[in-house]
Nucleic acid binder design. Structure first.
Lengths: 397, 397
DNA sequence: ATGACTTTGTTCGGCACTCGTAGAAAGTGA
DNA sequence: TCACTTTCTACGAGTGCCGAACAAAGTCAT
């Protein structure tokens, strides 16, 4: 829809690049920044000065000499403004605050009941997030420009939803298994309620953004699969998040993987990937086999214990995911496919997926392909949310 | 590989935007350009002056008044420099010359025998292309800057290859059914031979570039399928050509579409899309059924005549292509899927493909999806080649 | 210690690009 | 003939970046 969906920010060009280089520890001095960013020393000097006067950067004493003048070290100040983030899942939500460099400050997990509807679910989570940033009303009005903004005020909130989100409008569209959410304008609702800018996106997209920035910032093309209760994917093309026309890019959950008399899916079709390989499908299939299992955690435990049925199901799920991803890899030719979510912990699933990919893809497409588990951990979603807020709200270059 | 694979040129920003607006007939005067491009009138004036002095644009008398001063009309000069283009196919090649706005000047078709190897095939085609632009040595040395460059000199050549091309290096990599081409550095060979800048890309990518610029320039995400002797696809993401990590993006020909004892593919696997749905596969399957058919043209004729076997095969091919494209559409969520190549003329195939797409995709992904036949005609490949040359050689902003 | 050399960082002028404003040029219409 | 519109250019200003020169602060061999 928009011309530039997500500015390729922290890499080349954007003024945030310098900030990120310092925050990541890659650069400590202005000279480092010039070398790493490719900008001229004079430009770096200029920009650093601007960042310091905005309160986004500060000097931190002198470093060690490398045979010449000692560098004046730079650091990202702690205690500045905050970003709120919510990563909503099928049964649990993760929420927290992060600083303007995208580092987690505080994080919590809460059980949620999606079926209570968007107002109730989001309302409670928003209240908790805003409570984590008490600085909002402690801000000194006159100094908002000079000092980074009072106590620890909230500059924006990023929210991930486990279903399709029309990013331009912030609406949730035709989600399966989220009764009462269809068409809900989550962005507007949250922005009105908190009086703070809000961005809303699909949870897999946020995972992709978080993991890509944290682990693969130098790679141009990547696919991140989130396999938990449901299955989704986030797509990076040319260093930017690819959301597609309706914002539903990466939604592979209803691709067909088994011939016609397959298991019935929540979407009404049969044989969908989600009906075969998602966490919910594993739980359902085990129960059908008479194995008493509570939830996905129970399934994971069975697999860890070496239960035959559960392990076989996990292998089959991995094969199914691999079959779809094989098409995706041939078509998209990414540099990396990373899998996250609860099911990524499942070794048999991962192994089957890998095997299927290598078997079914062009050798050309897999020869240099990284197939990994997501390395950023359970906070990856809220980290991606914060990245999005930084890109779109804090510093939309 | 590169940060900015293909600059989003003719749209917003690039200095070529103005040229394209004039060439397409959308703008006739400087005032038009200012309105359409969003640039200020002063900037337009400046850029137009620069383009005129480069010989890329010229004034063409006064237009009709709209209640005020009459506009000074602009036009793209004819007779300027040329771009050479070759669209290599499995059995035929299309070659020609185009002007700097991407319009075809001359075009021809030649039978080729790929198996003669790259030097012989490309050598002959290059000779013919250079012969179409005799201005190369007629150029007046001193005036190369002021006047557009002598007679009709060749500024660059764009070449499409029916197999994977590593775009960065210009090498052909592991093509199936192109014996003797693997690893061949086509760009270097052609550039040395002609002493002119050369760009080489996959044929489906060039088709995508040509069709996108000509028909869907305003759309951000598109997939163009080229179904002829082989099957390939070109991918546009965010208005740019997405080539992927190894340049093999869009290569869906070896995705599996039938369960294990499927037809043997040239790649050694069984059940590949190419072994089921390509033109070559249709010819082979008909022969196996005892139908004497010469080539793809023969198959098309049978289908037009209503032959049951041929039509059934075409329908099955359409379904197979649709099954793969369904995954692609769910994953990539494009605004348009267009199909070109010889098989696109086949109505039953197209119908089956459409049906399969609507059946297997998320409604969200197909509700606004255009499913079309390519409209640019048989020259689309060389038009795309010229676009690539313009972007990368003539005017790499 | 002393001078040569390194590394770090700033200042300053200049280039390239764009915009806005003003105004010139060239029409129309009452 | 005058008011008004449309088209196009000229000029000054602003921005963002760069390179060169220089200033600051070290190390190291003699």
């Amino acid at each position: 829809m928009t011309i530039d969906d997500a500015p390729r920010d922290g890499l080349r060009g954007g003024p945030r690049e310098l900030l990120r280089l310092v925050a990541s520890g890659a650069a400590v001095s202005r000279a480092d920044l010039a070398r790493l960013s490719g900008l001229s020393p004079s430009t770096v000097s200029q920009r650093v000065e601007a960042l310091i006067s905005e309160g986004l950067l500060q000097e931190a004493g002198a470093g060690k000499s490398r045979g010449g003048r000692r560098p004046r070290q730079l650091a990202v100040p702690t205690g500045g403004a905050l970003i709120g983030a919510i990563d909503l899942g099928a049964h649990h939500a993760r929420l927290g605050t992060l600083d303007l460099t995208g580092r987690v400050v505080e994080v919590r997990s809460r059980p949620v009941r999606i079926e209570d509807g968007p107002e109730a679910v989001l309302g409670a989570l928003l209240d908790e997030v805003t409570a984590l940033a008490p600085g909002a009303d402690a801000a000194v009005p006159g100094q908002r420009e000079a000092v980074p903004a009072g106590g620890r005020a909230l500059r924006g909130i990023g929210i991930g939803i486990p279903g399709p989100v029309q990013y331009d409008t912030g609406r949730v569209v035709s989600p399966s298994r989220m009764p009462g959410w269809n068409g809900f304008d989550a962005r507007d609702f949250c922005a009105r309620r908190t009086q703070v800018p809000v961005v809303v996106d699909n949870d897999a997209n946020l995972m992709a953004l978080g993991e890509h920035r944290a682990a693969h910032a130098e790679l141009d093309h990547a696919v991140y699969v989130k396999a938990g209760t449901g299955i989704g994917a986030g797509v990076i093309s040319g260093g930017r998040l690819h959301r597609g026309a309706q914002g539903s890019a990466g939604d592979i959950s209803h691709c067909r993987v088994v011939a016609d008399p397959g298991p019935l899916c929540s979407c009404g079709n049969t044989g969908c990937l989600e009906a075969v390989a998602s966490g919910a499908a594993l739980v359902a299939a085990l129960r059908e086999q008479g194995v008493p299992v509570e939830d996905l955690t129970g399934v994971m435990r069975l697999i860890d214990d070496g239960d035959r049925h559960a392990t076989a199901l996990a292998r089959r799920a991995g094969r199914s995911i691999g079959e779809i991803l094989a098409v995706v890899v041939n078509f998209f030719n990414p540099q990396v496919v990373a899998i996250g979510g609860r099911l990524a912990e499942c070794e048999p699933l991962l192994a089957s997926m890998r095997a299927t990919l290598y078997e079914r893809c062009l050798p050309l497409a897999t020869q240099a392909l990284l197939i990994e588990r997501v390395v950023t951990g359970p906070d990856v979603g809220i980290m991606g949310a914060a990245q999005l807020v930084i890109d779109r709200v804090v510093d939309p270059s």
